[in-house]
Design a protein around this nucleic acid. Structure first.
Length: 522
RNA sequence: GGCGGAGUAGCUCAGUUGGUUAGAGCACCGGAAUCAUAAUCCGGGUGUCGGCGGUUCGAGUCCGCCCUCCGCUACCA
């Protein structure tokens, strides 16, 4: 199905199953979902991947604590993340799990490739290890305990241990990575993050331990079953597994790799922007085209943490405000890349002011007038004035502005461009006063309402990536066929046909009042 | 400490390569309208553009110093 359409492959991180899905997971995937939908509507052959990271000692411990086999345990907890994709209407094309056979095979294949290329060697990993925590700690994290023994932040005693470990020769990649960043200035966004990464790499790189012998829940190292492949090499490889690695000649791999975008939270940027390109280049593969590091949300101005008990449940959020409303808020409230604050008042302001009042009411007032004054049919446009034409021209040109924003993941700017048009449309309604024209000049009224209906068609088509349900309902109310909702149908060639019967309009963006969404439009 | 970013109207932010009276949204005040989800539209800001000094005919926009805040400074996803 790829044909000659441009392809677009984008990924979320794979989420660690030891966590319960929270707003941060939903946010990352939401950003990808909006982008994936946008690209599909814009004619791209899109591949949108998300999934779960299911290996590691913490998972093994949790499974044991639950009295379960690790595989059965991960089968259960990874379901939480698949449920989230349904609850939030995510349109991912695939959901990968690191415990799947395809991934284990892929991991071992890239491992062999790196070994053959001389990028991996056997050494030993030494550090302060806390038996109680089953974890290593850095020297700077330790404190002196009684008896002069070192103590971990958790209070556990640590001891100096050495274990055999395979290492990836990251230290040899500094210059090549810097050259890569130089040659690809948009590889890391936002730009401030790019500076951080470059600064980090300039500071020198150490070889990276990529295997463990202290636990077993992972992908076995080929030809050395005492070791399992450690976290990042396992986890990051999912991005190529999902498009067919190690079958690099397959149609899938040829079509979709390198990925156009890895969307990540700012906390895991380094792994994606430093380790991952090095792994890939070391294995003779192309690095991805972009890594975008987005920010975090606070809750009513407070840092979110389990200990504070203010974690935001993405499913509850949607039940409270509505899915499209939450999707809109998260992508509109904050310049994408920055941190943001989720607070009730801001949510309601966006929901009522921008969705219900600006957008919803625009559609409702126009469609109602058509319903009452035009026999519920798309009116016949007469001669257009310069104002009409200029106004419609703005609607036709909107896609260009939104596209420019989306190409650099500036969701807030794309939405701002759409809202500038919505505000202008409300101004046009008032300036033309079609309710007056109904009595004085019905033909002119028809033209005005036609121009507005056509504008709303453009708006609804453009808001589909952000608010799929509400946008679809608006397009239904304009009787736009399902197959005429792509961006190719923007512009005059697919304009509404006069005489088309329209259903009775219904509100699509309820207001939030008195602690409840209004009944209407629910 | 080192490197980097930021400090613009009450709030959140835009402000191309320096150039007419520094902008938007929200909030607030006043007016209009009444088609519409009590929604909409129009009008209204004397803002030390963090501070001081400098370059320039001219700086929010360049340079220096200072103040404040933030991010990064490796093997936990």
């Amino acid at each position: 199905m790829s044909g000659s359409r441009p392809r677009y492959y984008l990924t979320t991180p794979i989420y660690y199953v030891n966590d319960v899905p929270h707003i941060g997971h939903a946010y990352t995937t939401l950003a990808c979902d909006a982008l994936a939908r946008f690209m599909r509507l814009d004619g791209h052959d899109v591949r949108f991947l998300t999934g779960t990271d299911e290996h590691g000692q913490k998972v093994a411990n949790s499974a044991r604590a639950a009295g379960m086999d690790p595989q059965a345990f991960t089968d259960r907890v990874s379901q939480n993340f698949r449920d989230l994709t349904d609850a939030w209407n995510f349109s991912n094309d695939d959901f990968i799990r690191t415990t799947e056979a395809r991934h284990i095979r892929s991991c071992q294949a890239i491992w062999r490739k790196l070994v053959a290329a001389g990028e991996i060697y056997l050494g030993s990993y030494a550090g302060w290890y806390a038996v109680r925590d089953e974890a290593f700690y850095g020297e700077n994290e330790l404190q002196d305990g009684p008896d002069g023994k070192k103590v971990a932040p958790s209070g556990a005693e640590v001891e100096w241990v050495e274990e055999p470990s395979y290492f990836f020769k990251l230290s040899a990649w500094q210059d090549r990575l810097l050259a890569f960043y130089q040659a690809n200035p948009d590889f890391i966004l936002p730009e401030s993050r790019r500076n951080e990464v470059i600064s980090f790499v300039k500071g020198g790189l150490r070889d990276l331990s990529v295997s463990r012998t202290t636990f077993k829940w992972g992908v076995p190292v080929p030809d050395d079953p005492d070791h399992i492949i450690y976290v990042w090499l396992d986890a990051l490889t999912n991005y190529i597994t999902a498009v067919g690695y190690p079958e690099t000649e397959s149609e899938s791999f040829q079509t979709y790799w390198p990925a156009d975008l890895h969307m990540v939270g700012k906390d895991i940027l380094r792994f994606h922007a430093v380790y991952w390109p090095a792994f890939l280049m070391g294995a003779g593969l192309e690095p991805p085209r972009r890594v975008f590091a987005h920010g975090w949300w606070t809750n009513e101005g407070q840092k979110i943490s389990k200990s504070l008990g203010n974690v935001i449940d993405p499913v509850e959020l949607v039940e409270k405000y509505g899915l499209d409303q939450v999707r809109y808020f998260l992508l509109r409230e904050v310049p994408f890349g920055n941190d943001g604050d989720f607070n009730h008042q801001a949510m309601v302001n966006r929901m009522n002011g921008e969705l219900a009042n600006d957008y919803g009411n625009l559609a409702q007032r126009v469609l109602s007038m058509i319903n009452k004054n035009c026999q519920a049919k798309v009116p016949e446009p007469g001669e257009m004035t310069g104002d009409d034409e200029g106004f419609l021209g703005s609607a036709h040109g909107l896609i260009g502005q939104v596209r420019d924003a989306m190409e650099v993941q500036a969701f807030h700017e794309g939405l701002e461009a759409v809202w500038a048009m919505i505000r202008a449309a409300n101004g046009y309604v008032d300036a033309q006063a079609p309710w007056k024209l109904a009595k004085e000049d019905p033909a002119r009224m028809g033209t005005v309402l036609y121009v507005l209906a056509e504008t709303i068609r453009h708006l609804a088509i453009l808001t589909q990536p952000f608010m799929p349900d509400a946008s679809a309902r608006l397009l239904d109310q304009l009787a736009v066929p399902e197959d005429a909702r792509a961006f190719a149908c923007l512009g005059p060639d697919h304009a509404l046909k006069a005489g088309t019967e329209l259903p009775k309009p219904e509100g699509v963006f309820p207001r939030y009042e008195n602690g409840e969404k209004t009944e209407e439009g629910e």
